[in-house]
């Protein structure tokens, strides 16, 4: 069986700057893969190519063995890829539950219905998802007024609405308190294992990465410089040099 996600030689340049340059990796069902690297390493660009927001200059993206390179984000989503954003993107004029309902309605292919109240549709599954991410108590609140950490949970619920094979999470814990971070990633890991979802996430917080990632990919200046388990990556001298900032091989600051 092919891996849930596989990329082959992905590349993208912006005005001559190689943001991502020949990246290949894969992600397996039920496992969390962390994509790390210093600022400007190309993580977000890489993400945006995976879900179709950017077209790669070169290379291929395969979802369960089928090419999805260059498909529009909404088509990629239809094939079972959920996504959360570095800066949360939710519908501010809807309640928490309606946000999830919207995603469920879209997943059911009913978003063009001209009648029937939308907030009465897909109530059960929406409540179940909210329950899963611990947002039941806040289901009636407007997304526009939520705390940042809660928004991240809502995003996770939205991203799970299409029963995805693959979950892409760009900086899922940015802006959260350290304890919240651990809790959210623990929750994510639990859900991923339960449902057999492959999770690819970028993260700045190394504690989060090393605590939850089953494997780690390290990007630097658009290139994949290391991959392996947390322990392997942590001890990789190249990674230490460019990322963990020992300064030993780069000649000091």
């Amino acid at each position: 069986m092919p891996p849930v996600l596989e990329t082959r030689d992905l590349a993208k340049s912006f005005g001559g700057v190689k943001a991502v340059d020949g990246v290949s990796f894969s992600a397996e069902a039920g496992r969390l893969v962390a994509l790390i690297g210093p600022n400007g390493a190309g993580k977000t660009t890489c993400f945006n190519m995976l879900n179709g927001q950017l077209k790669p200059d070169r290379g291929e993206v395969l979802l369960a063995g089928k090419p999805i390179t260059g498909l529009a984000p909404r088509k990629v989503w239809r094939l079972g890829v959920g996504r959360t954003f570095q800066i949360t993107a939710t519908f501010a004029s809807m309640t928490v539950r309606e946000n999830v309902q919207m995603a469920l309605i879209s997943h059911a292919g009913k978003s063009w219905r001209l009648f029937g109240r939308a907030d009465q549709r897909r109530l059960e599954p929406a409540n179940a998802l909210l329950d899963q991410v611990g947002m039941t108590a806040q289901a009636e609140r407007a997304c526009g007024v939520l705390a940042y950490g809660d928004l991240k949970r809502v995003e996770l619920a939205i991203a799970l609405a299409n029963a995805p094979k693959l979950l892409l999470m760009d900086e899922p814990t940015a802006g959260m308190a350290p304890q919240e971070r651990i809790a959210l990633m623990a929750l994510t890991a639990r859900i991923a294992r339960q449902r057999g979802i492959a999770v690819l996430f970028t993260e700045h917080d190394m504690d989060v990465v090393f605590a939850h990632a089953d494997s780690v990919l390290v990007l630097d200046r658009g290139r994949l410089i290391a991959s392996g388990t947390s322990a392997e990556v942590r001890n990789d001298p190249q990674v230490r040099a460019v990322y963990l900032g020992s300064g030993a091989t780069s000649g000091g600051h």
């Binding site: 927001q53 529009a72 909404r74 989503w77 954003f85 993107a89 004029s93 879209s106 997943h107 299409n162």
Partner: peptide, 17 residues
């Protein structure tokens, strides 16, 4: 709702199909 979703956050709207 879908229309409003596109207004509130085009990015998210596209990302849920």
């Amino acid at each position: 709702y879908a229309l409003r979703a596109g207004r509130d956050s085009p990015l998210r709207a596209e990302a849920i199909g």
